[in-house]
Lab assay of single mutants.
Amino acid sequence: RPMNAFMVWARIHRPALAKANPAANNAEISVQLGLEWNKLSEEQKKPYYDEAQKIKE
């Protein structure tokens, strides 16, 4: 299954978030990633939607 825009973004940002929160488990990191993603504007998300579309094609 191809990655969606959030997954493209999260793949880039997960390592830094995990390093900054070494005690957090994957579920907690995923929740935090979701919160951070939701704070982004549509303009900030656009490159990730574009990349996800390329992956689908």
Rank of each mutant, 00 (worst) to 15 (best):
R1H: 13
R1S: 13
R1L: 13
R1Q: 13
R1Y: 12
R1D: 11
R1F: 12
P2K: 11
P2Y: 13
P2N: 09
P2G: 09
P2H: 13
P2M: 07
M3E: 09
M3K: 07
M3F: 12
M3S: 09
M3C: 09
M3P: 13
N4Q: 08
N4E: 10
N4I: 11
N4W: 07
N4M: 11
N4D: 14
N4R: 04
N4L: 12
N4P: 03
A5K: 00
A5G: 09
A5E: 03
A5Q: 01
A5C: 02
A5P: 05
F6T: 00
F6G: 00
F6N: 00
F6Q: 02
F6K: 01
F6Y: 11
M7F: 12
M7E: 13
M7W: 10
M7P: 02
M7Y: 12
V8W: 03
V8D: 02
V8Y: 08
V8R: 04
W9F: 15
W9L: 00
W9I: 00
W9Y: 06
W9N: 00
W9D: 00
W9A: 00
W9V: 00
W9H: 01
A10C: 10
A10H: 02
A10K: 03
A10I: 06
A10M: 06
A10R: 03
A10D: 07
A10N: 04
R11D: 15
R11V: 14
R11Q: 14
R11L: 13
R11Y: 13
R11I: 13
R11W: 11
I12Y: 10
I12F: 05
I12E: 12
I12A: 10
I12P: 01
I12K: 08
I12M: 09
I12W: 07
H13I: 06
H13Q: 07
H13E: 04
R14L: 06
R14W: 07
R14K: 09
R14N: 02
R14D: 00
R14A: 12
R14I: 05
R14S: 05
P15L: 07
P15I: 12
P15Y: 07
P15T: 08
P15G: 11
P15C: 07
A16Q: 13
A16K: 13
A16C: 11
A16L: 15
A16G: 08
A16M: 15
A16H: 11
L17G: 01
L17M: 11
L17Q: 03
L17A: 05
L17I: 14
A18Q: 13
A18V: 14
A18H: 10
A18C: 06
A18E: 15
A18R: 15
A18S: 12
A18I: 15
K19P: 02
K19S: 09
K19Y: 07
K19E: 10
K19H: 09
K19N: 05
K19I: 09
K19F: 10
A20L: 14
A20M: 11
A20R: 11
A20S: 09
A20E: 10
N21Q: 07
N21K: 05
N21F: 12
N21W: 11
N21P: 01
N21C: 06
N21L: 08
P22M: 03
P22V: 03
P22W: 03
P22A: 04
P22Q: 04
A23G: 14
A23D: 14
A23M: 15
A23I: 07
A23K: 13
A23F: 14
A24D: 04
A24I: 06
A24L: 15
A24K: 12
N25L: 05
N25M: 04
N25I: 04
N25F: 03
N25S: 15
N25G: 11
N25P: 07
N25H: 06
N26G: 11
N26D: 14
N26E: 12
N26I: 10
N26R: 07
N26K: 12
N26L: 09
N26S: 10
N26V: 06
N26A: 11
A27N: 10
A27S: 08
A27W: 15
A27V: 09
A27T: 11
A27I: 10
A27K: 15
E28I: 08
E28H: 06
E28C: 03
E28L: 06
E28G: 03
E28P: 02
E28A: 10
I29P: 00
I29W: 02
I29E: 02
I29Q: 02
I29A: 01
I29G: 01
I29V: 05
I29K: 01
I29D: 01
S30L: 10
S30N: 14
S30M: 14
S30T: 13
S30K: 11
S30D: 14
S30C: 12
V31H: 13
V31G: 03
V31P: 01
V31L: 11
V31Q: 13
V31I: 14
Q32T: 06
Q32V: 11
Q32G: 03
Q32P: 00
Q32D: 02
Q32K: 12
Q32R: 06
L33P: 01
L33R: 00
L33F: 00
G34L: 15
G34T: 15
G34E: 15
G34K: 15
G34M: 15
G34I: 15
G34Q: 13
L35T: 06
L35Q: 11
E36Q: 10
E36Y: 10
E36P: 01
E36H: 10
W37G: 00
W37P: 00
W37N: 00
W37S: 00
W37H: 00
W37Y: 02
N38E: 12
N38M: 12
N38P: 01
N38G: 13
N38K: 13
N38A: 15
K39V: 04
K39Q: 07
K39C: 05
K39P: 01
K39N: 08
K39R: 09
L40C: 02
L40K: 02
L40V: 01
L40W: 02
L40I: 03
L40H: 01
L40S: 01
S41M: 05
S41V: 03
S41W: 01
S41T: 13
S41Y: 02
E42N: 12
E42Y: 15
E42D: 15
E42W: 15
E42G: 05
E42Q: 11
E42R: 13
E43D: 12
E43F: 09
E43Q: 11
E43P: 07
E43S: 10
Q44H: 08
Q44L: 08
Q44R: 05
K45R: 10
K45T: 03
K45F: 01
K45M: 03
K45H: 01
K45L: 02
K46Y: 04
K46Q: 14
K46T: 06
K46I: 06
K46D: 02
K46M: 08
K46L: 08
K46N: 04
P47Q: 05
P47S: 05
P47C: 05
P47E: 05
P47F: 09
P47T: 08
P47Y: 10
Y48M: 01
Y48P: 00
Y48D: 00
Y48R: 00
Y48K: 01
Y48I: 01
Y48G: 00
Y48S: 01
Y48C: 02
Y49N: 04
Y49L: 06
Y49W: 08
Y49P: 00
Y49K: 07
Y49V: 08
Y49T: 05
D50W: 07
D50V: 13
D50C: 05
D50Q: 11
D50M: 14
D50N: 07
D50S: 07
D50H: 11
D50K: 12
E51P: 02
E51N: 03
E51H: 06
E51C: 11
E51G: 03
A52H: 03
A52P: 02
A52L: 08
A52G: 03
A52T: 03
A52C: 04
Q53T: 08
Q53K: 15
Q53G: 05
Q53Y: 06
Q53N: 11
K54M: 10
K54Q: 11
K54I: 08
K54G: 06
I55T: 06
I55G: 05
I55C: 06
I55Q: 10
I55W: 06
I55V: 07
K56N: 15
K56Q: 15
K56H: 15
K56S: 13
K56V: 09
K56Y: 14
K56E: 10
K56R: 11
E57P: 09
E57A: 07
E57S: 08
E57D: 12
E57Q: 09
